[in-house]
Amino acid sequence: MAELKPGGPLSSAGLRLVQELPYSRPATPGYHTQVRVGWIGLGAMGYLMARNLANHRATHVEPHRPLLVWNRTRQKGEKLLHELGGGKVAIAQAVVDVATTCDIVFTSLSSDDVIRSVYEEIAAAFQAQPPATRKILVDTSTIYPRLAGEIDALVSAIPHCSFVTAPIFGPPAMAENATLIIALSGDYRSKKEVAFTVVPAIGRRVIDLGGNIEKAPTFKLIGNSLILGSLELIAEAYTMAEKSGIGQDVVYTYIKEMFPAPLWLSYGDKMLHDKFDGTEGFSIDGGVKDATHIRRLSSELNSPMPAIDTAHHHLLTARALHAAQERTGTTSFPVLDWSALIAGTRVAAGLDAFESGKQSGPVPESESE
C-alpha cells in the first residue's frame, strides 16, 4: 500500500489508492492482520477468488493463518489444498465451522435458495452459541436485492455480527488475474475491513454503494443487464451477417477495430468460434437466473428493459435446444455458456443453433466463383 504524507500533495500512487479504496485504513490495523478469513463456495468464480485470496494473505499478512474453505462437493476444496498446500488453505468439515472459526466469512454461491439455506444454517449456529467476537459475513454472489435485506435482518439480530453485500463484476479471466470490480453496501466499518481484505487480493477496486444493504445487489443486476444486452446485440448482428453473406468474422473484425472492450472481444470470439462450454465460463443457468432477476426488478420499478426480455427468450431457447441434444446424446457441451443465447437468434433466422459453419444464408461471392 502506498504511504501518503500528511498535508502533502497526493502522488499518482496515492490517487490510485484513493480511487481503488474509498475508505481510510481500518481504525485498528492490527486487527486486520490477525483475523481468520473463511470462504464458502468454490464454483467457477469462487475457486479463483479463494485461491487469489489465500495466496495474497500468505504473502502479505503476518502472522499468516490458512484460508478456511468449504464447498458442497469436497473435491473442490481438496483440489485447492493440493494446488496451494496446507500452509495457505485448510478444509472445513461443515459450513458452520467456517462461520464459527473465522472473523470474516465470504460466500460465493449459485442461487438464491442455496444462499438463503447457508445463511439460515449459520444464523442458527450463532443463535445457539452467540459469538463473543466480531463477525463479518460477506456475500459475493448475484442475488435478488430483497434477499439481501432478509439476510441482513437475520444476521444483524445476532450480537457482534454484520452483513455486507459485495457482488463482483468480471468474467473468470478477471478473477484469475485478480482484476475484478467489487460493489459494496452495508455497515461502513465492516465495509472498510472487507475492502482492505479484497483489494488487491481478488480485485482492483471497490465501489461503495452506501449503507442500504440492497443497493449493491441492485447495482449488480444493472451491470449484468449491460453485459446481457451486449450479448444479445452481438448475437443479432452476427446472425444477420451470416444470413446476408457478409460473415460474422467480418463483424468481429469490426468489433476489434471499433469496440475493443474486453467483454465484446471475449464474447464475440466465443460466438464466432462456437465456444459454448459453460464449464469454462458463465453457465446458461446462471444467465437465466440473472435475466429473471433483472426482469423482476424492472417490473417492480416500472422500468421496462425490452432488450433483456428478448435476451431472456433466447437464453431459454438455447437451453431447450441443448436439453433436446442431451436426450439424443448429440450435445458437444456438458453445460452451455450464456453466450450460447446466439442459438436463439440463429434458429429464428433458420440457421443451425450451435454450429455457425452450417449456415443456410446467401453464399459469399468469394465462395461462389
Rank of each mutant, 00 (worst) to 15 (best):
N52E: 02
F169C: 08
L10W: 06
S11M: 06
A235T: 03
T142E: 07
L336R: 10
D269V: 02
H60Y: 11
Q75E: 09
K191W: 01
G8L: 08
L21M: 07
E326Q: 12
K76N: 03
T345Q: 06
E365G: 00
P167C: 13
T331K: 13
Q325Y: 03
V98W: 02
E120F: 02
T253C: 10
H313V: 07
A241I: 00
M1E: 13
I143Q: 12
L53C: 11
T140C: 13
R327E: 09
T218K: 12
H60N: 11
L180H: 03
E236W: 08
G86P: 01
A173L: 04
S117T: 11
A237F: 00
D112T: 07
T100K: 13
E236I: 08
R116L: 13
I213Q: 11
T197H: 06
G8T: 10
M258V: 14
A353L: 05
I136F: 05
Q75C: 00
H322K: 11
C102H: 04
L15K: 14
A92D: 01
R189M: 00
S356F: 03
L316H: 14
V114E: 06
T28L: 05
T328E: 15
T101M: 01
G43D: 11
V89S: 01
Q325A: 10
A27P: 06
E367T: 00
V69T: 10
S108M: 14
H293Y: 15
A320Y: 01
I168N: 04
Y144R: 04
I234C: 08
G8E: 13
T73I: 02
D139R: 02
Y31Q: 09
V95H: 06
A44D: 08
L272E: 02
D187L: 01
I143C: 12
A307L: 13
L265V: 01
A125C: 12
T179S: 15
H64A: 15
V37P: 04
G170N: 04
A125S: 15
I182W: 04
P200E: 09
V96M: 06
V69W: 02
P200V: 12
S156D: 08
S141G: 07
N302P: 00
Q19Y: 12
H64L: 07
K289C: 10
S156Y: 05
L80Y: 02
V118L: 09
V96L: 07
L67D: 00
S332G: 12
T73K: 11
E369K: 12
N177G: 05
E242V: 11
A58D: 02
G361E: 05
S299M: 14
V105P: 08
A348F: 03
T165H: 07
D112M: 10
L265S: 01
S108I: 02
G229I: 05
L231F: 08
M271Y: 01
H82T: 09
P145N: 10
E365A: 12
Y119T: 07
A132K: 14
M49N: 04
D139S: 10
W338H: 13
P171S: 15
V105F: 03
S156W: 04
I143T: 15
M240A: 05
I213Y: 09
A195D: 03
A173W: 02
A153K: 13
I158F: 08
